[in-house]
Every structure is written in structure tokens, then in C-alpha cells.
Design a protein around this nucleic acid. Structure first.
Length: 958
RNA sequence: GCCGGAGUGGCGGAAUGGCAGACGCGGCGGACUCAAAAUCCGUUGCCCGCAAGGGCGUGUGGGUUCAAGUCCCACCUCCGGCACCA
């Protein structure tokens, strides 16, 4: 076939000629290893035989092995995808062969911005390009031989899937969080306070709406004009959008929010027992950001009333600390209530509701100007401008609850309105931000904590650690922790404060002003004039799904008015029970669909419910979840949140969705050498290059290593950078899986990605490395197949002899190592061991089938196509993919004798061969019997002998 | 700045506190071949030595230990994440 020849030609250019090329048509077919022939054959076989279909319920042991499903981008699969997918595929295949019932599904996270942007650019409806992209992804995934149960495939954009995403939204909408029980409960069970009940139905409805887990809010949001959408805090990195790096401004807008903060405590606490990488747990923990401290009220004295504070204090002491602060106090949150005596000023955020009340007339102009400037500032300005502190004095003072002294109140944007109470007590001696601010504005610095090392602070010095209280009234001399505990109790008793917990986690901004997302199943009531009354109702469950309307114009506007508001009237307006409604026109963010896909995989065709409870109980939780670390916080946190709500409402049986989590590392491009060309011509050393010098790629043959560094071969004084970079289109170092499969075969790609290094590590791509594992597969092939025959026939060395002891020893050690390594996901060392086996077996003149067949069995999860082919050639009934995993016969793992190193003074001086069970004394005797050792010990006094049976002997001498 | 992770041959990497460098790439040598490719075999950390052998070696400097790539302390570099959360 012509194509084979063309492949061969293409390969010449990639530097590895002829590997996968078919012979020219004129020659008879040579029985070489040809993945291009084998791989489609077995993929078709598996498909025809439903080899990997999973039953509805597991029989016996189950394993739910899950990949993070991909976003089907227009570029197709990236080599990063098959890394995690191959790892899970090996585990899935391995478990299946051990008799475990395996759930191993795949689907597509298909809503999202790129499809919509493509639609805007080309006028193609997103559903069309999405379908096309999914087809490409599916083809590529099948090409790699993954053992998914394709009958379970779902895409988040399927109308049937959207239906249940909307249904879960309605569960959130129908749930309130009972803080006492720490549990989500039906909204119908929300206790209605008598005064609300008395105010009538509308008031009750409003009260309920305020307590739902899905609620509307008018808060300022991150509006990104370039993307034409509002973004979640998590999608804004350093003031620009995570996608595309566009500037983001803050704008007040009606938005849907999800009350994830209600679950903050459980999300943090229940993280503890999960089998997740510690680093990911830490990341999530930090993101949730629990801190403990105290809330304290500072009295705002009415002008000219000197006795008011005393009266307030008495009233507070008689009552309780109010749940919500009145307008007569400034409530602050602090993690260091032990520094209360060091407070020299207060700061409130520019958005603080009391700012107006606290602003004195003489300060009004300055304050207004500051507030406006702060509002205009994007987050970018707030974070990036080197944290240069700004602020304005309000002119007011509040009264310190413990000392009764007046404290000046400032406004500054280093205090965030959205955290704690939006106001702080400033302790410049013991907080670096306050310190910086105080220095800039000349405010007092009063030290109240002495460092534990006994030194005392210089005046104006900063100390942020724990220590011993000084100048703190009755608390003086207490250590920080005791102080905090005691003052918390005292504040509570006095009714002016209480211990408090705060979280950095914010509620989840859940609406987007985009077309390509799930519509909200929500209706807004309209009055006779067609204006919203503010009343909302959920679309009835039986009316789901709410489909996206047909639109020809997807463009976002200059304002945050969503594209769906341009839908035709028959979609947009709904009449029900004699009332007119307008549909919600925001759509859900991409996260929505990915929050629960692992549940739908279990029961993808169910039209009655989102998931059958029996099926859920049988399969959940996910036993192994593999994906990129970029989802460490968002996807995993959101999924856990939804799952907990579904759990509280009795829809799932487990509080956590994912048992074991593993992050595969990033695959970088090939290592590149970069030299720098001076503007004046000639090379500049990489360490000395300036911003104007141009980086240039240098071919490996022009570079050599000199000491620690790489230098130009022809100019060794010029240093060159050696580094692998992230794959990117602009750098032109993207490796295309289709191309790799064409050049080397799918089994080689799978095997290479597993052989590169540990799964979790970041590692650079190497095309010669792919050639290396391809060489291994070639050797596997030749172990079984006679390459010199005219057709496919067994190698003449393959025989039915009984295996020798040495062969069985090698075989069982290989099985043992591979089994253990798959269990610990150490695929690279498993492959190394199989290579050793092949190196052992290749020179054998007679190769017993009894060792070849088990070897092919353990090869199968890694290189399934080749294994199937070899299995067939060995005369075994297909498929090897479902053959039983061989058992290790333990006695072959033990040696009769071992070679033990002998050390003198910790230095290796010789080796002795002893029986494997030789004890310390025997070991020592054997070592002393060694002439070389004996000679070294002549004239020395042996002070001590360390002999570890089976491991080593060490003589300590003087 | 803070929090993670990692530094081992020319390269990717291996090593329950017990023989550093498994396995692969690359290099070198050999066999096969008219020749080349492919294949097979051998060799390959660095330095000294014809050799036997010796010395040095896991980012740097200390320490613990009979014994450290592995444990402890300090530091350097690279990668990733967070970044005014009181």
C-alpha cells in the first residue's frame, strides 16, 4: 500500500526510519510487528464482542476507575490526555483480569467558552462544532485502545444530561442549610420566624429565597468585557481572567450564587480521611481557609454624649452578643484578640455599610473620592500595585470595649469588604499590613506581645509571632494561646464579643452571561406591564429539561445582558397558572456538568431519575480518580459540595465522591537548548543575556556539557539554557498523538507515557524514548513470532518444554513485580521489569510456551493490542484482555544463596556468597574467610561487627 | 513574601537507612552482511593505571549513624501554587 511507503518517508524526517512502515507492495508480506494492522483489528474485535461492557451491578468485588473527562477542544487529543487515561486503563484491565467488576467509563465536558467563541467567529452553532469535536476525541480515544464501556458515554451537553443537571440545580434551590444540624434540608422545613409569617405569603417566599443554597444576589461581580461574561473569583487570577488573561472589572449585577460557604466546615473536615495527595488536601484546605479568632464590637459614640458608652456597656453585659451588629457598633473580626490592647486605629473597607455614618463632614470630600477610586479599581490594581497602602481618615472614633479609649477609624482598601466583617482592628506592632499602613500614615505603634525568646521589642518594631502579653491590663503575662482563650470567654460574658470562625471560601458565583451552558430552570414572574415582580418559581421537574433556544447571534454584548435574552418570545416567555413569566437568561458555568458526571456514568440511560439508588450504592465511591492537578481546587471542591447536598437530601449514600485521587504530572515538550543572540551580533552567555538579545533554538549536536552547564561546542565560553517547556502552539513543540500512533503505534504511545517516569512527575517528551519502548515491543513480538517466515508463524524457539527452574524464577519474579507495581501505580518500574524478562528470554534457544503465555498476560494491560495478537499466535483463545491474571508462586521468589557485600569501615571491600538463610554469625564467618577481607583486617582490632542477615556485613576496626 | 514539590551519568529515570546509577535513550566495540539498515551480543558515572587495583562521586555546607541519595539543621537553584483573608 502506498500509505505504508509514505509513512516510511515521513519517518526518515523524524529521524527514526522505517519503524512502522509496511514493506513495499512488490515484496511478500513480512511478518513484522505492524501496529497499524494489529491495533484496528483488536479494537474492532473488542467492540464486536462487547468485551468491556460493565454490568448494571457488580458481581463480587468492584472497582470504579475514573478519568477526569476531557473538554473536547477543536485541537483534538493532546499527549497529556493519554497519560492519565493509560494509567487508569492499565488498572481497569488489571482489575478485570483479577476478576473484579470494573466500571471504567468516559464522556465529555462539552459546554464551555471555546466552542462558543468558535461559534461567534464562524457562525457555526456550538452544538455542531461540539459534536464534531466529540467525534474526533472519541475516535482518538478508541484508537488508543482504552477499555471504556462506551455504552455509558455521556456529554454534558446532551439534552438528557442537561435535564438532570437542571434537576440537581433544583435540589440546591429546594435546600437550606441547617447550621445546627450541619445539614442541608428541604426548604419546606425551614422555620419561618413569626414576624415573617405575619407579614404574609410574599414575605415568606422572600425569606425562603434568602435561605436557599441557590440564591440570587446583587453583589459586585468580576465582569470581563473582553470575554463578555462574569467570572467566579476562582477564574480571576491576579486581576485578569484565567482564560485569555483579559482585564476584569467589578460591577454590581444580579447573579445566581451557590451557598458553598455553608458547607465550608464539612468540606474541610471530611477532607481528612480521603486517600488524596497531601498537597492537594492542603491546597483545598488553604482555599477553604478556616481561621479562628474573635468578633469584637467597638461602640460608635453619638456625638457629644460622653455617657453613652457606659450605658451601652451595661446593656451589653446584661444581654447577649447580638447575632447581627446594630448600627451603633463597628464589628470587627480578628485572629489575634490577644492584641486588643495594641489597637491604635481601626480600618473599614471602602464598601463597608457604615462608612457613610462614620464619615465626618470635614472628611466627606476626601472619603467620597477615595471610595470612588476604590470602586473603579479592578482587582488587578488592587493586588498588583506592589501593595502600596492607601487610605483616608474618616474623622470618627469608636470606643475600645476593654479600655474605653477612643480609636480613630480609617478607610482603606487593604481591608476586604467580603471577608470577616469588612472591618478590622489595626495592631501595627503585631501585623505587618497594619505596620506598613501605620508607618505610612504616622499612626501609633504599641507593642503588647513580647517575643518568646525573652528579647523585648524596640519601639515601632514589628513582631507577628506568639509570645507573652505585655501592657495588656489584667492579661499581662499570659502567653498568646491562653490569652486568646480567656479573652474570648470574657468578651462573651461582657456581651461585646465572642470567639468566631471565618473562612476564606466565598459563595460560588454560579451564573454566566453566555449562550453555551445549561439554562437555569427558573422563571421570573412579570407584572401586567411586563416588568419582573421579583418573585421567582422553579420550572416543574416534569417540564425538564429547559433546552437552549435557537439563536443565530451568540455574541455577548457590551453590557452583561445575556444572549438568551435575545431568544424568541415563545422560548423566553411562559404562562403558567394564569401568570406570565420570563425565563432566567443566565446560563450555568462549565463546572456544573462536571460536578456530577461520575454519578451519571453509573446509570446513563435512566429516564426516571438521575441515578438509581441501588446502582449508586453498589458502585460508589469512585475507587480511583486520575486527572490533572489544575483541578485540585475548583472541580474537586465543587463536586464534593454538590455531592454533600445530594447526600443530605438522600439522593446518594456516601458523603464523599472520590476515594483515591491521583494527579498525573504534566508532559512537557522535548528538551530544548536556547542560546542568545546579541543585538550587536554574536552569541551572549545565557546567564548574561539582556532583554534585547534574541533567544534562539540550538540543535543538540552543537551543544556540550561543561561542568554544571551546557555550552556551545564551537564557543565553550557561551553558556546555553537547557530546559523543557510546556507544550504550546506558539512554541511549536506540541506532540500530536495521531502522529505518534502513525509512527510507532498506540501500544508504543501508551507504554512510553507510562515508562517516562512516575505518573505524578512532570516530565519532558522524547521521541527517541518512544522509539525505545517500540523497540521493546518489537522484541516482545520476536520472542513469539518468526520474523523470517513467509507468513505469521510462531518462532521456531517456541516450544512446549517444561520450563526450567531459572525460567520459572524469572517469570514469577516478573509477575510479582508487575503486580505490585500496578497496585502502587508505579508503571515505569513494572515496564522495566518486563523489559528485563524479555532480555532474559530472547537468547533462549527453547522458549517454553508455559512462560511466554503468562508473560503475554501481564503485558496485556500495558500493550493490549500486541498482547492479543501474541496470545492468538501462541494458540490461546481470545481475548487475553479477559484472561485470568497469573498467580505468583512465592517459592520462586526466594534464592538459595545470596551475594552479600562486605564492608570495612563502611567501605565496600568485597562480596561473599552465603546461603540465603545464613544468620549473622555465619555471615561474619564467611566474610572473615574471604582472603581479601582477612588481609585488610590484619593488624587491626575489630571493634564491632554489624551483620544484617541477607543484606551486608560491616567490620568496624581501630 | 508565603506554601508545596524536585535537584542522582550525556539524557529520561531506579534504589524497605545496607553493593548508587535497575530499565530505557544516546555513545563505543563486536557478530551477521559484498555493503548498509535491521537484528543479536558485549561495553558504557568520573579520574589515575597496561593491568591488578585505587581514588572521587546523588545541588552546597554541617550533623546523626557501624552505614546516608534516603534521617536532622542551614543554605542554593529550578518548577508549581497562593498572594493584603486581619
Amino acid at each position: 500500500m502506498r500509505t505504508g511507503l509514505e509513512n516510511g518517508v515521513a519517518l526518515l524526517e523524524t529521524g527514526r526510519p522505517g519503524l512502522n512502515s509496511s514493506p513495499p507492495t512488490t515484496d511478500p508480506p513480512m511478518p513484522r510487528y505492524q501496529p497499524a494492522r494489529i491495533e484496528p483489528k483488536w479494537q474492532a474485535w473488542w467492540e464486536a464482542h462487547d468485551s468491556f461492557a460493565t454490568p448494571r451491578l457488580p458481581a463480587g468485588r468492584k472497582a470504579y476507575v475514573l478519568d477526569m473527562f476531557p473538554y473536547p477542544s477543536g485541537d483534538g487529543l493532546h499527549v497529556g490526555h493519554p497519560e492519565g487515561y493509560t494509567a487508569t486503563d492499565i488498572v481497569a484491565r488489571f482489575e478485570r483480569m483479577r476478576g473484579t467488576t470494573v466500571m471504567h467509563p468516559m464522556g465529555f465536558d462539552a459546554f464551555g467558552l471555546p466552542a462558543e467563541e468558535h461559534a461567534i467567529r464562524t457562525g457555526t452553532p456550538p452544538r455542531e462544532s461540539t459534536t464534531r469535536n466529540i467525534d474526533t476525541f472519541r475516535r482518538q480515544l478508541k484508537m488508543l485502545g482504552f477499555s471504556y464501556d462506551w455504552s455509558r458515554e455521556v456529554a454534558t451537553t446532551d439534552l438528557d444530561y442537561v435535564r438532570w443537571t437542571q434537576w440537581i440545580f433544583l435540589v440546591l434551590f429546594d435546600t437550606w442549610f441547617d447550621a445546627v444540624e450541619q445539614k442541608g434540608r428541604p426548604i419546606a422545613e425551614l422555620p419561618i420566624p413569626p414576624e415573617v409569617a405575619a407579614a404574609g405569603e410574599a414575605a415568606i417566599a422572600t425569606f425562603r429565597d434568602e435561605h436557599r443554597l441557590a440564591y440570587q444576589s446583587e453583589a459586585p461581580v468580576n465582569w470581563c468585557p473582553a470575554l463578555g461574561t462574569v467570572l467566579a473569583n476562582e477564574e480571576v487570577i491576579g486581576g485578569v481572567s484565567e482564560r485569555g488573561g483579559h482585564p476584569v472589572v467589578r460591577l454590581p449585577l444580579r447573579q445566581w450564587m451557590l451557598r458553598i460557604t455553608a458547607y465550608a466546615e464539612r468540606l474541610e473536615k471530611e477532607l481528612e480521611h480521603l486517600d488524596w495527595p497531601a498537597s492537594i488536601k492542603k491546597l483545598q484546605c488553604d482555599w477553604i481557609g478556616r481561621s479562628t479568632g474573635a468578633e469584637v464590637d467597638f461602640f460608635i459614640p453619638p456625638a457629644g454624649d460622653a455617657t453613652a458608652f457606659e450605658a451601652w456597656r451595661k446593656a451589653r453585659a446584661a444581654g447577649l452578643f447580638p447575632a447581627k451588629p446594630g448600627s451603633d457598633v463597628l464589628r470587627i473580626y480578628t485572629t489575634r484578640p490577644d492584641t486588643l490592647y495594641g489597637v491604635t486605629y481601626m480600618v473599614i473597607a471602602p464598601e463597608h455599610p457604615l462608612l457613610d455614618a462614620l464619615t465626618r463632614p470635614e472628611q466627606r470630600t476626601a472619603i467620597e473620592a477615595y471610595r470612588e477610586a476604590a470602586a473603579r479599581k479592578s482587582d488587578l490594581d488592587r493586588t498588583d500595585l506592589a501593595h502600596e497602602k492607601t487610605g483616608v481618615f474618616t474623622g470618627s472614633h469608636v470606643i475600645h470595649p476593654l479600655t474605653g479609649q477612643p480609636v480613630p477609624v480609617w478607610v482603606a482598601d487593604y481591608v476586604l469588604a467580603t471577608y470577616g466583617t469588612g472591618a478590622i482592628m489595626a495592631v501595627p506592632a503585631h501585623d505587618d499590613r497594619d505596620h506598613e499602613f501605620a508607618r505610612k500614615f504616622g499612626l501609633d505603634v504599641v507593642a503588647v506581645v513580647a517575643p518568646p525568646d525573652g528579647t523585648s521589642l524596640q519601639s515601632g518594631e514589628l513582631f507577628t509571632g506568639d509570645g507573652t502579653a505585655v501592657a495588656s491590663g489584667p492579661y499581662t503575662g499570659l502567653d498568646t494561646r491562653t490569652f486568646i482563650e480567656r479573652v474570648g470567654r470574657d468578651l462573651e460574658q461582657a456581651g461585646v464579643g465572642r470567639p468566631a470562625v471565618n473562612y476564606k471560601l466565598r459563595d460560588w458565583l454560579f451564573s454566566r452571561q453566555r449562550f453555551w451552558g445549561e439554562p437555569f430552570p427558573i422563571l421570573h414572574e412579570l407584572d401586567a406591564a411586563g416588568n419582573p415582580t421579583g418573585a421567582i418559581r422553579a420550572v416543574a421537574e416534569s417540564e425538564l429539561p429547559v433546552p437552549l433556544p435557537d439563536l443565530t447571534d451568540f455574541k455577548p454584548g457590551a453590557t452583561p445582558d445575556p444572549p438568551l435574552s435575545r431568544a424568541a418570545a415563545d422560548w423566553l416567555f411562559v404562562e403558567q397558572d394564569g401568570r406570565r413569566y420570563r425565563r432566567e437568561t443566565n446560563t450555568m458555568p462549565q463546572w456544573a456538568g462536571s460536578c456530577w458526571y461520575y454519578l451519571r456514568f453509573l446509570d446513563p440511560k435512566n429516564t426516571d431519575r438521575f441515578l438509581d439508588p441501588d446502582v449508586e450504592k453498589a458502585w460508589m465511591p469512585v475507587d480511583l480518580y486520575v486527572g490533572g492537578a489544575e483541578h485540585a481546587v475548583l472541580h474537586l471542591l465543587y463536586s464534593r459540595f454538590w455531592h454533600k447536598v445530594l447526600y443530605d437530601r438522600g439522593h446518594v449514600s456516601q458523603p464523599e465522591p472520590f476515594g483515591k485521587l491521583v494527579n498525573q504530572g504534566m508532559i512537557l515538550g522535548e528538551v530544548e537548548f536556547t542560546g542568545y543572540r546579541s543585538t550587536k551580533g554574536g552569541w551572549v552567555s545565557a546567564t548574561e543575556h539582556g532583554p534585547d538579545d534574541t533567544p534562539m533554538k540550538v540543535a543538540a549536536e552543537h551543544v556540550e556539557k561543561q561542568g554544571e552547564h551546557f555550552v556551545l561546542r564551537d564557543a565553550p565560553q557561551i553558556r546555553v539554557e537547557s530546559r523543557a517547556h510546556k507544550m504550546s502552539k506558539s512554541r511549536g513543540n506540541v506532540v500530536n498523538p495521531d502522529q505518534v500512533v502513525r509512527d510507532f503505534g498506540a501500544d508504543s504511545l501508551r507504554l512510553y507515557e507510562m515508562f517516562m517516569g512516575p505518573l505524578e512527575a512532570t516530565k519532558p517528551w522524547s521521541t527517541t524514548g518512544v522509539g525505545g519502548v517500540r523497540g521493546f515491543l518489537d522484541r516482545c513480538w520476536r520472542l513469539v513470532v518468526d520474523e523470517r517466515a513467509d507468513g505469521i508463524s510462531r518462532a521456531t524457539q517456541v516450544c512446549d518444554d517444561a520450563p526450567t527452574d531459572a525460567q520459572l524464577r524469572e517469570l514469577h519474579r516478573t509477575i510479582h513485580k508487575v503486580t505490585k507495581d500496578i497496585e502502587s501505580l508505579s508503571f515505569n518500574t513494572a515496564i522495566a521489569k518486563m523489559m528485563e524478562f524479555v532480555n532474559f528470554a530472547t537468547p533462549l534457544e527453547r522458549r517454553p510456551r508455559a512462560i511466554l503465555a503468562p508473560f503475554v498476560t501481564i503485558l496485556a494491560p500495558f500493550a493490549p493490542h500486541l498482547a492479543e495478537e501474541l496470545w492468538e499466535i501462541l494458540g490461546q483463545p481470545a481475548p487475553v484482555s479477559l484472561a485470568a491474571w497469573p498467580t505468583v508462586e512465592e517459592h520462586w521468589l526466594k534464592d538459595d544463596t545470596v551475594e552479600v557485600p562486605v564492608q570495612v569501615q563502611g567501605k565496600l571491600r568485597g562480596r561473599v556468597v552465603v546461603p540465603a538463610d545464613a544468620d549473622a554469625a555465619a555471615l561474619q564467618a564467611a566474610a572473615l574467610a574471604d582472603p581479601k577481607i582477612a588481609e585488610l583486617l590484619v593488624g587491626k582490632t575489630v571493634v564491632k561487627v554489624v551483620a544484617v542477615p541477607g543484606r551486608m556485613v560491616n567490620f568496624v576496626v581501630r
